[in-house]
């Protein structure tokens, strides 16, 4: 029953988020701030992880291809497919659930326990719209992060495979272009948009409705990471089933 209550509360929160909009000039500033915190602030870790995970994927594939009948271009093909289909959109989103999700939960949770949300409500401001709407809009730019992650992942794979002497550069590029299905990119970006919405709203829910003090803010951040990851994984499965099978 608690789960049903939480799911209902989550959808009511979403409804409240798109009501009684905050003044445009104030909202603009909030969106820019969230863009800086959520998107620009995540670029460093996403770039670092993408490059090295891409490199490791290429290395692992190259090291496990012992059969001379299997073409070396498979290293690039495998790296491209794994990065575009799962690593960049899903794996990075799970990491973002830890980074961005915890930040959203703890920042809203702290405002909750220090009565800052009450202060907004008393002033007649729709706190849901003020706090959550800018985050949703900022996260619309999340696909750019994932696009950069895809590029850097493949660059990492190229660097490891070519510099490591496993695959010649022209063969790697040929492998990247082999059997490329453009719809795979569409699929990856459709789920990225869904993950962006989940990343903005599920942690916000956990911060907004938490009760207690500083200790509970920490607990809410952990719970938020777990639930955001669970929702992302389930959504990933549903979207893959719907679009690719």
């Amino acid at each position: 029953m608690n789960y049903l209550h939480s799911i209902g509360e989550y959808f009511l929160m979403l409804k409240g988020t798109f009501h009684r909009m905050t003044k445009g000039s104030v909202l603009r500033g909030l969106i820019l701030k969230e863009l800086d915190d959520l998107i620009i602030g995540s670029m460093g870790i996403v770039s670092f992880l993408s490059f090295f995970i891409g490199a490791v994927v290429a290395l692992q594939t190259a090291l496990n291809l012992n059969n001379p009948l299997i073409p070396k271009s498979l290293v690039a093909y495998a790296a491209r497919q794994s990065i575009i289909l799962e690593f960049a959109p899903t794996f990075i989103s799970i990491i973002m659930a830890g980074k961005v999700g915890s930040y959203i939960t703890s920042s809203i949770g702290s405002m909750n326990v220090t009565e800052q949300i009450d202060a907004l409500e008393v002033m007649g401001i729709n706190s849901l719209n003020y706090l959550i709407f800018p985050k949703i809009i900022a996260m619309l730019f999340y696909p750019f992060v994932i696009a950069i992650s895809m590029f850097l992942g493949i660059l990492g794979a190229y660097t490891a495979a070519v510099m490591g002497g496993f695959v010649p550069p022209d063969i790697f590029v040929q492998g990247l272009q082999e059997d490329f299905i453009p719809f795979h990119l569409v699929y990856a970006f459709i789920k990225t948009f869904l993950f962006a919405f989940i990343l903005a709203t599920v942690p916000a829910y956990h911060g907004y409705y938490m009760k207690g003090g500083a200790l509970e803010v920490g607990q809410a951040s952990t719970t938020s990471f777990v639930w955001t990851s669970v929702v992302i994984i389930i959504t990933n499965y549903a979207v893959t089933q719907l679009l690719l099978s």
């Binding site: 220090t114 009565e115 800052q116 202060a119 008393v122 002033m123 007649g124």
Partner: peptide
């Protein structure tokens, strides 16, 4: 009128509730 009323209210919270 409710919206106008909320603009006519000032509140000092126990902990200050300043936006940090």
């Amino acid at each position: 009128e409710k919206k106008d009323l909320s603009k006519q209210i000032g509140m000092v919270f126990q902990g200050g509730a300043l936006f940090d």
